[in-house]
């Protein structure tokens, strides 16, 4: 009888160790799941960069070639006559002091490497933020590069094939 009792106690002790391990797994899982469900920080930087690029590509107030006869922006064609800092700044205005976004647009000819046209959106901040790209932590700047096949118009009205590189800079908060 005595032997039986001690065997039961030993068995129960081993059993409770297994239970304790299972309990730890449950607690860790619950904490992990709760932490996954609660979003304390949402990063919208990439979304903002995409919105800016889409605005450049689609808005008739921006750099897209605008056909006055039909009143339609000709998507996919960049009007190089409008590709300047002033047009870009007025197309997407955040007021006098824009501390949210900056961008650079470069247009290369399709066959030759040298840059044909360059324009900046929010140039003062672009120049200030660019050296801070690649750093981490608060005060650093995120860089979002885009490379898109495009067409561009020349002042004589000719349409050429080109490559448009857009670099969007967004400061990390």
């Amino acid at each position: 009888m005595k032997r039986d009792k001690s065997a039961i106690t030993t068995f129960e002790m081993i059993y409770w160790i297994a239970r304790a391990i299972f309990l730890i797994i449950v607690i860790v899982s619950v904490v992990t799941l709760v932490r996954l469900c609660i979003t304390t920080q949402s990063n919208t930087e990439e979304l903002e960069a995409n919105l800016l690029v889409n605005h450049f590509l689609y808005s008739p107030d921006s750099i897209v070639y605008y056909d006055e006869f039909s009143g339609r922006p000709m998507l996919g064609i960049v009007d190089t006559g409008r590709l300047n800092d002033m047009t870009l700044d007025s197309a997407f205005s955040f007021g006098d002091k824009n501390t949210m976004l900056a961008a650079k647009i470069e247009i290369y000819d399709f066959d030759s490497k040298p840059v044909k046209f360059v324009a900046y959106y929010n140039k003062p901040y672009y120049d200030g933020w660019f050296p801070l790209t690649g750093e981490s932590g608060a005060g650093a700047v995120s860089e979002y590069p885009f490379s898109i096949y495009t067409l561009y118009s020349t002042p004589d009205g000719k349409i050429n094939k080109g490559i448009m590189n857009i670099t969007v800079l967004i400061p990390k908060s």
Partner: peptide, 22 residues
């Protein structure tokens, strides 16, 4: 899904450029 929809706008502009390529 939001990311894909954003990208669709860029893809659409590229297709327009392709079809208008001289």
């Amino acid at each position: 899904d939001i990311k894909a929809r954003q990208q669709t706008l860029v893809t659409n502009a590229v297709l327009e450029a392709y079809l208008r390529t001289p």
